[in-house]
Design a protein around this nucleic acid. Structure first.
Length: 105
DNA sequence: TTAGTGACTGTAG
DNA sequence: GCTACAGCCACTA
């Protein structure tokens, strides 16, 4: 297990400001595009096993769709967390996605 | 080892 | 705008 990749994904995810979201591809690209966006999603899937809390709900696909909500214990939790942070969610997707989009730097 | 799968994305029609 | 296909790499059985 190479925690290096996962650790980076978790680190970037934790750096996402409140009220902002990002995409799997953005993270993958930030890590050097050495890995595919699917690996980012896979890493986040393992985020529950991570020792520290990872706001995986702030990571969505490029369309702003909450594709990962199905992997949460309660699918409604992801929406509530986003809305509590000021992100509008409608029909399992982020409203004004481009405005709240945040890219790692 | 090989094959199947996945929280994705870009390109083509 | 949407649908379909291919590429992507790590993990599990």
């Amino acid at each position: 297990m190479q925690d290096n990749f996962y650790d980076k994904v978790f680190e970037v995810t934790r750096k996402i400001p409140v009220g902002k979201v990002t995409s799997y591809g953005a993270i993958a690209k930030f890590l050097g595009s050495a890995k595919s966006a699917r690996m980012v999603g896979w890493a986040l899937n393992k985020s529950s096993l991570h020792k520290e809390y990872v706001p995986a709900h702030r990571v969505v696909n490029r369309k702003g769709l909450l594709t990962g909500k199905n992997h949460f214990a309660n699918q409604n939790t992801m929406i509530e967390l986003l809305e509590s942070e000021g992100i509008k969610v409608e029909d399992n997707k982020v409203v004004n996605f481009q405005e709240v989009f945040w890219q790692p730097e």
